[in-house]
Structure formats: structure tokens, C-alpha cells
Design a binder for these strands. Structure first.
Lengths: 224, 224
DNA sequence: ATTCTTGTTTATCAAATGATAAATAGTGTT
DNA sequence: AACACTATTTATCATTTGATAAACAAGAAT
């Protein structure tokens, strides 16, 4: 194959300067690039390619993360911790405004938090593996948002309270339907690679209005 | 590591019998197992592991598929060709029954066609790569189902025809919302690994009813 | 029974890839 | 200016993994 001397390259070219960052800075830099990198190519992406994008050598990664898996775990953690606002639950429960308005407020902030390249793709990369990352996150959505929403909708529409008539799996499923109708945008964009919707906020609000128009009859039917 | 002689294993054990199938049979067998295998572990799954599951040796795969990529492409093709019923478009256009009933009929058949382990996971594995597989499939959904549906809904509700007032991206987006609210079930089940809904047909029908309850106002608003 | 065809296995390669040890060099301290 | 510390690179390993060539053997043809 005629590769006489691969070693001993004079390195008189560009990347000759060592940068020598503080460990905390370097680590953060690695994590941020790793998120982008793994989001793009998947967790099977090579450490050498990641290092190249960082402008460092591959063994340096192992100074900061003992194994590749440690780096992957760190990426999960970073994504998970950064993008959930605990106040969201309060917004859903804020009875000073109608449920539709609360939902619009919530999704106006939730949508950009998760409908973006890195979050969507890391989340689905996780799903293709067997880690419990997705389950943990969806548990948040279910318990902090959707179940709370069930109760608020029942109340606003004058239906039996969830204390009197517990939320059935089928009823909850309708709320997952609302959620899915909205986040499916992100899946189409960043997983399937289709064109983006023109005005996400307006479209999302319209979906919320459609949902609210039909939810009373649907829940009433389930409570019969 | 003390692995003195890895070769020359007597093979007096179980898998000693050569099966020798007809080429067509073997190829079909490989493709079917490859679908399950790649759906489960992703397209980075190893050919050796796939061969092991098939009970054949790894080089035999290369007798039937010159490269791994050829096998992967075949898996795409198989999944793509098998699971689309051309009659579906006719169902949506079948004016002998109301649109809601047509939708329920369609999704009763569409749902099980795609909400299953193999289809969902292959489809998302494809999405994590850069192949045009997903775009091609979504194009089918958009043109053969959703755009047709737009026109039928307009007609049934006495709104301006799509000829008079073309479907805007925002309007189409609402129909993607319906679609997403239904198939999101499959994503939660097979990508995120959460529990299955109790009665998919009933839940899907309820989602359709909710959608139909709100779509008129939403479209009217967009046409203003 | 012998021969022939070809489906299948055995043995093996080359490149890719996660990981490690030792050498190098940037930065602050004395 | 000499030294110490350590962030970074160089060199290298071991395993994994897609792929190939040659040997083997099941079943049909003679």
C-alpha cells in the first residue's frame, strides 16, 4: 500500500501550538463538543474524530474521561440536567389564566428547549440504546406536566375531579397525543430531516386550540 | 491472556451440521433476521453477531451480499416496500362515509403497519444516518394521505376548496399534528421503551375525534 | 460409485478503534 | 535562570470488525 513512514511527521504545518487550558475549561470544551458530535453521528462516533474537531489529540480525551462510556454518560447527564425548568409545573397549575393559555405559555418555552438538533438527536440516540434515559425523562413529562394537566382540565371543564375519578391510562394517552402532536415537529425536523414548520409558536398554539376544542367530549366519553 | 490454540477447535459440539439451503431461501432468511437484528442493535451491529443468530458463519453473508452496506440497503428496501398499502389514499377519498370514519379506518390499518418494533426502530435508525429513507417515506404520507385529507376536510366542512385557497404550510402542519399525535405512541413504545397504551384503536379514534372537533375553527382562522 | 456443482466453513488479512505508557512542552515558582 | 508540575502529544498496543481466498462437503448428475 506504500505507506513508508507514517510516523515522524515534521508537523511544521498549522496545528503545532499547544494550547494548555485549565482542566475545567478543557473538560467543559470537550463535553460541549461531544454533545454536538454524538448528536450528529451517534454514540458510535470515533474518539479520534471528536478529538480532531476539538483540535486536540485523541489520548487527551482519556485524561479527562477514563473511558469513552464515561464521556457518553457525561453527555447524557449534561443534556438531562440542563433542559428542564422546574417552574413549568407551576405554570400548568397557575389558575389565574385558562388552561389553554397556560399550555401555550408552557410550550412556548418547552418547544425550543427540546426541539433543536442536539437535544432531539441525543435523545433518540439514547433511545436506540437501552439506557433508561428516555424513561426517566418521560416520567418527568408525565408526572410534572401531563397528569397535572389532566387535573386542571377536569377542573376547568367542570368534570369530576381526578380524586373522585382517577385518570385512566386511556385518558392520559390523549394528553400524550397533544404532546406528541407538538414534539413530532422536532422529530420530523431533526430525525427525519424534513423542512421546518414556518411559525412553530403559531402552529403549536393552533394544536392546543384544537385539543382543547375536543378534549371535553373525549374525557366525558371515557368517564361514562 | 492464555489463549493457546484458538483455531482447530474440534467442533464436536452442536452446530456441526451444514444446512445448505437454496440460495433464495437463504437470502430471504438473512434479510428477515437482518431486519430484526439491525432494528434491535442498530446498523452498527456486527456481521459476526448477525451470522451467529442465523446459525451460519460470517463469511457466508458475503456470498449473498457483497458488502454490509448492500445488506443494510436491502433491509431499507424490504421495510419500505412491504408496509405501504396503495389503497389507503382511496380510503381517505371515499366519500360514502364522513371524514372521521375514513380516518379511523385508515389508522386502524396504518397503526399496526408501522407501530411495531421492527418498523419503528429501522425507521429511526435510518433517521440517525443521513439516508433519504425517511424523507421519501414522509413524502408518501404527506402527498397520499395528509394533503388529500386537507382537501376532504375542507370539502366536508364547507370551507373554500384547496383549488381556490391552496393549503398553506401552517395548515398542513395541523394534519402532521394529528398524525404525530397517533404515531407518537409507537415512538414512546419502541424507541423510548415505555409501557404500551391499553387499547390503541380506541385511543386513536378518540384522537381523531378530538382533531375533528377543532380543525374547522383552526382552518377557518388560517384562511382569514 | 464417481464426478461435478456450489453452498458453506475455515483460516486469515487489513483497517479501524478504544485505550495506555512514555516523552514533550507550557506555565508558574523559587 | 533553573526547577517543578502537569497539560498535551507521540508512539504503540490489543481487540474488533468488514472483507477475502481457499478448503470442505451436501446433493445432483452421470
Amino acid at each position: 500500500m506504500t505507506k513508508p513512514d507514517k510516523r515522524k511527521k515534521p508537523k511544521t504545518g498549522t496545528a503545532s501550538k499547544r494550547s494548555r487550558l485549565l482542566p475545567d475549561e478543557r473538560e467543559k470544551q470537550i463535553v460541549l463538543e461531544a454533545i454536538r458530535f454524538f448528536a450528529e453521528v451517534g454514540f458510535d462516533g470515533q474518539t479520534r474524530e471528536l478529538a480532531r474537531r476539538l483540535g486536540i489529540t485523541q489520548p487527551l480525551l482519556y485524561r479527562y474521561f477514563p473511558t469513552k462510556q464515561d464521556l457518553v454518560d457525561r453527555v447524557y447527564k449534561e443534556i438531562y440536567l440542563t433542559r428542564w425548568n422546574p417552574e413549568w409545573q407551576d405554570w400548568i397549575e397557575d389558575r389565574r389564566q385558562p388552561v389553554a393559555a397556560r399550555l401555550k405559555r408552557f410550550y412556548a418555552e418547552y418547544y425550543p428547549a427540546i426541539v433543536n438538533h442536539d437535544w432531539m438527536r441525543i435523545f433518540f440516540q439514547a433511545g436506540m440504546r437501552n439506557v433508561g434515559f428516555n424513561q426517566r425523562y418521560l416520567k418527568l413529562v408525565r408526572e410534572r406536566i401531563l397528569l397535572v394537566l389532566c387535573a386542571e382540565v377536569r377542573r376547568e371543564l367542570g368534570l369530576p375531579s381526578v380524586a373522585a375519578r382517577p385518570v385512566s391510562p386511556a385518558e392520559l394517552e390523549l394528553y400524550w397525543g397533544l404532546h406528541g402532536s407538538i414534539v413530532y415537529d422536532g422529530i420530523r425536523q431533526y430525525i427525519y430531516g424534513t423542512a421546518v414548520p414556518p411559525d412553530p409558536v403559531a402552529v403549536t398554539n393552533a394544536k392546543i386550540d384544537i385539543f382543547m376544542a375536543g378534549i371535553k367530549a373525549a374525557v366525558t366519553n371515557l368517564l361514562k
